[in-house]
């Protein structure tokens, strides 16, 4: 079982497990607004976990907790041996973030740097990698995301899908232990969604631990080892894609995935 809401506390402590991320009883509020109300989630090394659910259910906040961009008021977060909830200093959080890649909806490439420099900057400045080595890796990654010919372009000269692929390459340049994807295709037009999903698909196939917040139900179904359904700051259910998308008895989940068309809304160019 990859995800174990509620019973997570009973099975783990002290035992050598291959889980890489473990959230236990996470509570988080912004002022009076309770965003997360006791979330439990375990992700195993090499797995792809998709988090689905309606907007405002706390999906993105959950993701931000994993690399300390948001700090919960209560609960334990463990990322590959690091107790994230206990990191009080910014320097400690930076150490964690070096190991956890994150890709956002709005790409957020640095517009004043070329594609190549966007990918070279983080490893050279944050990890202290020398320029030649970072550039070699950057070119390999650009090859991987099929943008070798765009190395000297500026982000403003690329399409949204191309920018997002560069953003993924930039995250990989830090050689992260896992990558978080926060609705990375939500700002893209249907035609370019496919090219970004293909890059993530390759990554998951290569065994990169990936946690995705997504509205691409078909894609989640295809690549995930586990799908998590969240609503109102809680994990309502979790399980294999088959369980969540097709055999769930929960009426809310059936309504949600049915409404988004778990089957039958194949997009052109998306591929399988």
């Amino acid at each position: 079982m990859t995800v174990s809401p509620d019973n997570a506390m009973t099975t783990t402590d002290g035992k050598a497990q291959d889980h890489i991320v473990k959230l236990e009883d996470i509570h988080l509020s912004f002022g009076q607004t309770q965003v997360l109300k006791g979330v439990n989630l375990t992700v195993n090394k090499g797995d792809a976990v998709s988090i689905i659910g309606p907007s405002g259910s706390g999906k993105s906040t959950l993701l931000r907790c994993i690399n300390a961009l948001a700090m919960p008021q209560r609960g334990r977060i463990t990322v590959n041996g690091t107790r994230v909830d206990q990191l009080t200093k910014e320097s400690e959080r930076i150490e964690l973030r070096k190991r956890v890649g994150i890709v956002f909806q709005q790409y957020n490439l640095f517009p004043h740097l070329t594609v190549l420099d966007n990918i070279v900057l983080p490893p050279t400045k944050i990890l202290g990698v020398n320029r030649a080595a970072a550039e070699k890796l950057a070119r390999e990654l650009l090859d991987k995301v099929r943008l070798s010919d765009k190395a000297n372009s500026y982000p403003g000269q690329l399409s949204g899908g191309q920018q997002q692929r560069v953003a993924i390459a930039r995250a990989l340049a830090m050689k992260p232990e896992l990558v978080l994807f926060d609705e990375v295709t939500s700002a893209l037009d249907p035609e370019t969604v496919g090219e970004v999903l293909q890059v993530i698909r390759d990554l998951v196939r290569d065994g990169m631990t990936s946690i995705l917040v997504t509205h691409e139900m078909r894609f989640a179904e295809e690549i995930s080892d586990t799908v998590v359904f969240t609503e109102n700051g809680l994990i309502v259910d979790h399980g294999s894609p088959e369980q969540i998308f097709h055999t769930s008895t929960n009426p809310r989940i059936r309504q949600f995935v049915g409404g988004l068309g778990a089957r039958g809304t194949v997009r052109d160019g998306e591929g399988i």
Partner: peptide, 11 residues
Amino acid sequence: SMVEAARGMGF
């Protein structure tokens, strides 16, 4: 969001 992305990378 760009500043957050940079922070998220470890800058």
